[in-house]
Amino acid sequence: MDLSKLSLPEMFQLQKDLGAEIEKRKVSDKKNLIAELQNLAAAKGFSLQDVLGGAVSTKPARSAGVAQFRNPADSSQTWTGRGRKPQWVQDWLDAGKPLDGLRI
């Protein structure tokens, strides 16, 4: 893929899509791995809980989230939209600007 032909907004969208896809893949790959390990343990006459001492969870760990907002003054600063608003977001809103103006 030749990234030099993409516009900056297209690259930001690609970055957002890539982050979301990575999170989905991590969840599905973990589920598949747990299923494989359960089958392997069962073939040896054990449950996976027996082998790992009951520390098996099929629920995905809560991810940090994908950034949805970017500071226009410093593109390295992002915010997922969860938790406390960063100061640069609050300053933006205090200036009467809409939150969607920061959306990636």
Rank of each mutant, 00 (worst) to 15 (best):
L52C: 07
T58L: 14
P98L: 03
E21V: 02
G54Q: 10
D74V: 11
W92Y: 10
M1G: 11
K26P: 06
V56W: 01
T80E: 02
A20K: 10
R25T: 14
P9M: 07
E10S: 05
V56Q: 03
A35M: 09
L14P: 01
S47F: 09
S57T: 09
K59F: 11
G101M: 04
L93V: 02
A95L: 06
V27E: 13
Q13V: 14
V27Q: 05
T80H: 09
L37P: 00
R70P: 00
L14G: 01
L99A: 07
S75D: 06
W79I: 00
R84V: 06
Q68F: 08
A35L: 13
Q68P: 03
M11Y: 13
L3A: 09
N32W: 10
R103N: 03
E10P: 04
G19K: 05
Q49F: 12
R103E: 08
L18D: 05
F69Q: 03
Q87I: 04
W92G: 01
K24I: 04
A73Y: 03
M11F: 07
Q77G: 05
T78I: 10
D17Q: 15
Q13A: 14
A41N: 00
D74W: 09
R103V: 05
I34Y: 03
L40Y: 10
A55Q: 08
Q90F: 01
N39E: 11
Q68K: 13
M11L: 15
K31M: 13
I34L: 15
K30A: 12
N39P: 01
S76I: 10
D17C: 05
A20P: 00
L33A: 14
P86I: 00
D50H: 04
G19N: 13
Q87K: 11
A42Q: 05
L102M: 06
G54N: 08
K44S: 09
P72I: 02
Q90R: 06
Q15S: 15
D50I: 05
L52A: 05
A67C: 13
T80S: 08
Q49V: 03
G54V: 02
Q87V: 11
K16H: 15
T58P: 01
P86S: 02
A55F: 11
Q87M: 07
D17G: 10
A43L: 06
L14V: 10
A95Y: 06
S75G: 08
I104Q: 06
Q77S: 07
A42E: 08
V56A: 02
V51H: 00
G54M: 02
N32K: 12
P72E: 06
Q87F: 04
N39G: 13
F12W: 11
G53Y: 00
S63W: 07
Q68H: 13
D100G: 05
V51E: 00
N32T: 14
L37V: 02
L6K: 09
W88D: 01
P72V: 01
L40R: 13
Q77M: 03
Q68G: 09
L3D: 06
K59W: 05
Q15Y: 09
W92E: 03
F69Y: 15
T78V: 15
A35V: 12
A67N: 04
G65L: 07
K24R: 14
N32S: 11
R103K: 10
M1C: 08
P60Q: 10
S76C: 04
S4C: 08
S47K: 01
G83A: 12
R62S: 07
L8C: 06
A43H: 11
A64Y: 13
D29L: 13
Q90Y: 02
L48K: 00
D50S: 06
D91L: 05
D29V: 15
R25F: 12
